[in-house]
Amino acid sequence: MPQAKKRELPIWLLVAILLAVVFFWLITTNGQYAQILNTLQKGIGVTLFVTFVSFALACILGLAVAMARGARNRAIREIATFYTEIVRGVPILVLLFYIAFVGAPQLVALYNFAMSPLVDAGVIEKLLVRDLSMTWRAIIALTIGYSAFIAEIFRAGIESVSSGQVEAARALGLSRWQTFRFVVWPQALKNILPPLGNDFVAMIKDSALVSVLGVQDITQLGKIYSSSTFQFFETYNVVAFLYLTMTVSLSLFVRALENHLKRSHTNQQN
């Protein structure tokens, strides 16, 4: 039997933990760092809210686009492909500005036009552009931006399932939905989860871009605090520490999940 590969000691992880302990000690013993952390912790909730909501909506939209790209109707396939290719070619920062200052007013106008009978009847009030907060404009932009990349992840995962299994399921009398639900999706999910987790980690970092819209996340609060106290070194140390804590933790979780899926797949083959 082949000898099991010896697991190497993750030196980088030990160094990262050591730095985290040192920095945590600085925060608890240094009044300046403690004050900065107390100020920035208000933005942690905003950062996590924007990230989780945007990612959940992007997954839903991405799955819909991926399914559309595999549709029988050519027009639907072309529209989904056009959406994916165009959105992936636009930088997230540009998309944030476009949605916030161009798309949002048009969306409000479309809503008011669709709801005009109810508005005229006095059932609901007319929506104003300022009623759509910058936080939700940022969420919409991140949702659209990431849905195109996630759609490709879903499409690749779905296409990784052999067509023979799909044909066998259809031969057994399963409908297209039943085939997708019971045959394609469980197998595709194993290939989808690792890259999907990496995109989630990337979204946490890209959520810092919403600070350009004035959203009170970690980056924006750090920018305001450092510009008022001139403690740029200390402030951005704490900002980097908070983002690293979130991203490294999630990266380790994604890696553990990937290893678990590999072991499960190996056990099934044996």
Rank of each mutant, 00 (worst) to 15 (best):
F82Q: 06
V254H: 07
V87E: 10
R72V: 13
K6R: 14
V123M: 00
P194H: 10
F55P: 13
T84H: 01
S160L: 00
M203D: 06
V46P: 11
T247Q: 06
I86C: 07
F180Y: 03
T135S: 08
V183Y: 04
L13C: 04
A151M: 10
D217A: 09
A169D: 02
F23M: 14
A75V: 15
V108Q: 01
A202N: 14
R74K: 15
G43L: 13
L14H: 00
V90P: 05
T266Q: 13
F52K: 04
R155H: 09
Q32Y: 03
L63H: 01
A71F: 14
F241Q: 08
L63V: 12
P186H: 01
V210D: 11
V50K: 10
P195F: 07
I124V: 15
L127G: 01
F200Y: 12
A75Q: 11
A56W: 08
V161D: 00
A256H: 11
V215P: 06
A114E: 06
V21Y: 06
S226T: 09
R255T: 08
Q32A: 10
Q35W: 01
Y98C: 13
L96H: 06
V129I: 15
L57H: 07
S228Y: 05
S211H: 04
R181D: 11
I17Y: 12
N191L: 13
I36E: 00
L142Q: 04
Y243H: 02
A16G: 09
V212Y: 03
P2N: 13
S227R: 12
L57Y: 06
V102A: 11
G62T: 10
T143Y: 12
L252A: 05
L250A: 07
I139L: 09
V212H: 03
V212P: 00
L61F: 12
Q220P: 00
L9E: 01
L189P: 02
V65M: 11
A114W: 07
V87M: 11
R77D: 13
L172V: 04
A104E: 02
V183Q: 03
P117G: 06
V248S: 06
I86A: 10
V210P: 08
M115H: 00
A100V: 05
R77I: 10
V53S: 09
M115D: 03
A188F: 03
V123F: 00
D120Y: 00
G173Q: 08
T29Q: 15
F182I: 04
H265E: 14
V210W: 06
L221M: 04
L172H: 11
L95G: 05
I44M: 15
M1C: 03
L193Q: 00
M1P: 12
Q41V: 13
T245E: 00
M203G: 04
R77W: 09
S175W: 03
S228D: 13
F82N: 02
L193P: 02
V210Y: 05
F180T: 01
A168R: 08
F230G: 08
F180S: 06
L26V: 12
N267Q: 10
W25V: 14
R155L: 09
D199P: 00
Y83C: 11
L252Q: 09
P105E: 07
Y225F: 10
D199T: 07
F253C: 13
V22D: 08
